[in-house]
């Protein structure tokens, strides 16, 4: 089984799974925090429409975890950098 790195920790995935599928398979349902109410969010629509599952992939934010196929060594960051 291959691994991606989520917030510094390895997470196994089955080849072909999306980042969201790998997270859900590991029992995680929430990984993002909303801007206004600081509420937890994870996968909702699962097909790229709702944008609830956003993560940063290899340093680029705004990636829908439900669309991006997991690849070995991919780094996933779930927290937005609240700079300034």
């Amino acid at each position: 089984m291959s691994e991606i790195v989520v917030d510094g920790d390895p997470l196994p995935f089955v080849e072909g799974q999306t980042v969201a599928a790998a997270l859900v398979a590991a029992g995680r349902v929430a990984w993002r925090t909303t801007r206004v109410g600081r509420r937890p969010r994870g996968v909702f629509c699962g097909i790229g429409v709702c944008f609830d599952c956003l993560v940063a992939v290899d340093g680029t934010g705004g990636q829908r975890a439900c669309l991006v196929p997991a690849r070995p060594g991919m780094t996933v960051t779930t927290r937005e950098d609240d700079d300034e």
Partner: peptide, 19 residues
């Protein structure tokens, strides 16, 4: 709340990722 998904989302995880 996390844990509430669309029915299609549950289906997509199953069919697309076997999850």
């Amino acid at each position: 709340l996390p844990g509430v998904l669309t029915a299609g989302g549950l289906q997509a995880l199953l069919k697309g990722g076997g999850v």
